[in-house]
């Protein structure tokens, strides 16, 4: 059974030049897809735009139809206390459990700040966070 806390993030390959993010955003707007959070990772001449959207399958289709290279990546969203020490709590849970964070980005939502994590052992991470009293976003919000 699918883990209810594993969220499907879409990742989009993008050249590092003006207008590319606009093109991606325009495509999502055209498909009436809402973006909860996104980040841009940049390298030498190119980048990867990562986004949590309300309907990832449709976003995937809209972008690939326009020729974008898109993939799904499993991430988890952890609610953080929006005050000093919030990030430290989450990071130490994972550090103690020897789970490596490949990348992370955060957004400040309506009720809490959310840390989006890409980790090397996702099932482990979910178990550890829940056992230590952490709160995770449910994937059902993103499909």
């Amino acid at each position: 059974m699918e883990n209810p806390y594993i969220i499907k993030q879409i990742s989009i390959f993008s050249e590092n030049r003006p207008g590319r993010l606009a093109a991606i955003a325009e495509a999502l707007k055209g498909a009436e897809i809402n973006i909860f959070a996104f980040s841009i990772a940049e390298a030498d001449g190119f980048g990867v735009v990562r986004a949590l959207v309300d309907r990832p399958e449709e976003a995937y289709r809209a972008l690939t139809d326009l020729g974008f290279r898109v993939s799904f990546t499993e991430v988890v969203g952890v609610k953080m206390r929006d005050e000093p020490g919030g990030l430290s709590e989450i990071a130490s849970i994972l550090g103690d459990a020897d789970i490596n964070i490949e990348y992370a980005y955060a957004y400040s939502g309506r009720d809490a700040a959310v840390l989006i994590l890409r980790v090397d052992q996702v099932e482990d991470a979910i178990r550890q966070i829940l056992e230590r009293g952490g709160e995770l976003l449910e994937a059902s919000r993103f499909r």
Binding site: S11, F13, A41, A43, G47, V48, R50, R69, T73, E102
Partner: peptide
């Protein structure tokens, strides 16, 4: 295509 910059 990988989501990870290092793979690319």
């Amino acid at each position: 295509f990988s989501d990870k910059i290092t793979d690319l």
